[in-house]
Structure formats: C-alpha cells, structure tokens
Design a protein around this nucleic acid. Structure first.
Lengths: 165, 165
DNA sequence: TGAAAGTTCCTTAGCGCTGAGATACTTTAT
DNA sequence: ATAAAGTATCTCAGCGCTAAGGAACTTTCA
C-alpha cells in the first residue's frame, strides 16, 4: 500500500539521493491530513452557520469553566493565533450575539468574554456533530491504533514544549 | 506526563460528560503540531527569502522530473490548494525569475511551468536546511517511533482516499 | 513616589487563500 | 460537422490572519 507521500519520497530519492527525505514521511503526512481534516470539519461547521475560527472560540469558552468565560489572552493561548485575530473573532461573535465582552473587575486593562445563552445553545448543538465528524475521520484506525497515535503525538508535543496552560 | 490537549480533554469530560472527546486526542494534537511545525519551518524559509507557498512550488518542481517542470494542475493537486492560489504563486515566482511559464506543445489551454537555473539553485540550497529543520522537529521521537507514526498516518491517509497521483 | 518596564487589548495595512466565474480550448456524442 | 460537456488556467472580490504598533493600565524597583 502507498499514499501520495510515498510517491513524493520516491521522487526525492530519485532526484536528490544525497538527501534523507524520511522526515517528510511524518511531517508531509501530517500536513496533508491537516488539510483533509480541515476541509471535512469545515463542511460540518458550514451546516450550522459557523466557521473554524468561531467554533474554536465558542468551544474554548464552553469547556473553560461553569460560567463559560475567559479573557482574550486565554483564548489566544488556547487557539495559537495572534491577539489581533482574537479581537476580530470576538468582534464577529459579539455582533452575532453569541458572546459578550465585559470589563474585568480586577484589572482595568482586562476584558472578560462570556458565552451568551444563544452562544451556549449553538455550541451545544454543534458539538456532538463535530465529535462525530472527527470520529468518522479516524474510522480507518482501530481504537488501539488511535490510542497509539495519540500517544506518539503527545510525546512529540511534549518534546516541543507544549504545556498544559 | 501531559500536554495541552490532555487538559482540554479533562475540561470536556468535566463540562460535557455525555460526550466522548477522545477523537480530539488525535485531531487536536495534529492541529497543534501543525501550527508548531509551520512556525518553525517558516522561520527557516525566512532565512532564505522564501515562504511556505513558494517553497512548496519550487520543491514540487524540483522533485517532479529531470526537467523540473509541471503543469499548474499538477502543482495544484500536489499542494492541495485551489487553482487560483497556484496562479498567484506562479505570478510571484515568475516575477522573481525563479520559474518560467511556457505554452504547452500538446494542449493549447495548457501551460508548462519550469524551474529556472536561479530557481534550481535556490531550492537546492534551501532543501538540506529544510530537511534538517524537519528532522529536529521530530527529534523527540526515536527512529522506531517515527516509523510507527509514519505508518499510522499513512493508514489514515489511505482510509481517506489519498491517492498516489 | 515616580519612572521604566511589562501587560492587555485593540487597530490597521498588507498578504495569500478561497470561491465564483470567465475564457479558451479539447473531447464526446450525435 | 457541430453542439454539448469537460478541462486548463486565470481573474478578482472578499475574508481572516499576521505583524507592527498604539493606548491604557499595572507592576517593579530605585
């Protein structure tokens, strides 16, 4: 069996036999899978008038605490995007009435973003379909293989300094 | 040991115990790794006056055949971006003198994109540093683990219909 | 206490991509 | 031979992100 990346590796070995292309066997595949996953998840978001960015914010708020609230900085760290991107995402979600921005009570620079009832309702409706879509994307692997894969990816993330906060 | 995604999974289990978040243990980690990989690879491209998109095109041409040439459609399939994106990438590369566009000899709709000597020189200079960067990104895994990971990712890609062409 | 450094969030120009659509050409089917 | 369908590439408006920088506020430390 062979996938697209196997062809790419063969081509490199033919054109640049001095180079060891094996790292591409991992990183190239992750990049391709990322694109395929993204396309499929986006399709599901689209059914619910959402996009990846909005889902990301709503889901992060939903899981964060019982009040469904977080600072923009917290959202930024969780999402791995810049502060400017978070500001713009919040503008859009606030305009749709899915989140509110309130001044922080302890730090006058700060803002507290909170899910509105409408935001909560929407994310709670979309979440099961999202997990289901993800599950289908992984259905080519057995449960044991998924665990094995998750473990290897965690090892890699830890080695790159990905922290719990 | 635990990474950021372990925290996310814990949060989901606390807030939505009815949902099985385990697919996120794979897909969430791949997404995070993708972002970390991208940032590091981009740093390397930047050292050589390149970006991901340009590198992608130059590398695909470099490995494709002895003439280092391909059609825009071929580049599009390999890169998983739209035809519009390829057109624009080629505009930029052509303006920098790194590729040429010539009319196809067999199909008057078609175009043949070819690496110029300057393009070849640049990609051959950057390639070893790129593979080296990728290798360092994977250094948290043993060689056996990398093989195992590549195998699982290939299984997944095949199950999603990723083909050799 | 006051100045400097740090933090938090926002604004905006510029960039590359998508999605829709246009143009020109080729293939298929009648 | 010709209409219809398909293919290859390009154009462009719109979108979300980054990078840079600004404003407001807090912390640190002399």
């Amino acid at each position: 069996m062979a996938d697209h990346v196997d062809l790419v590796l063969e081509q490199w070995r033919a054109r640049r036999p001095d180079l060891d292309p094996s790292p591409m066997g991992v990183i190239g595949r992750m990049s391709r899978l990322g694109a395929l996953f993204d396309a499929e998840l986006r399709r599901n978001f689209g059914k619910h008038d959402l996009d990846r960015a909005s889902f990301d914010v709503l889901a992060t708020l939903r899981r964060s605490n019982a009040e469904h609230s977080l600072t923009p900085a917290g959202l930024m760290h969780s999402s791995m995007v810049t502060s400017g991107a978070i500001s713009q995402r919040l503008d859009r979600l606030e305009a749709r009435g899915l989140v509110t921005r309130a001044p922080s009570e302890t730090d006058r620079r700060g803002v507290l973003v909170t899910l509105t009832p409408e935001g909560l309702e929407l994310i709670d409706k979309v979440l099961p379909t999202h997990v289901d879509t993800e599950s289908q994307l992984l259905s080519g692997l057995s449960l044991a293989e998924r665990d094995q894969l998750a473990g290897l990816l965690r090892t890699l993330l830890e080695s790159l300094g990905d922290k719990r906060d």
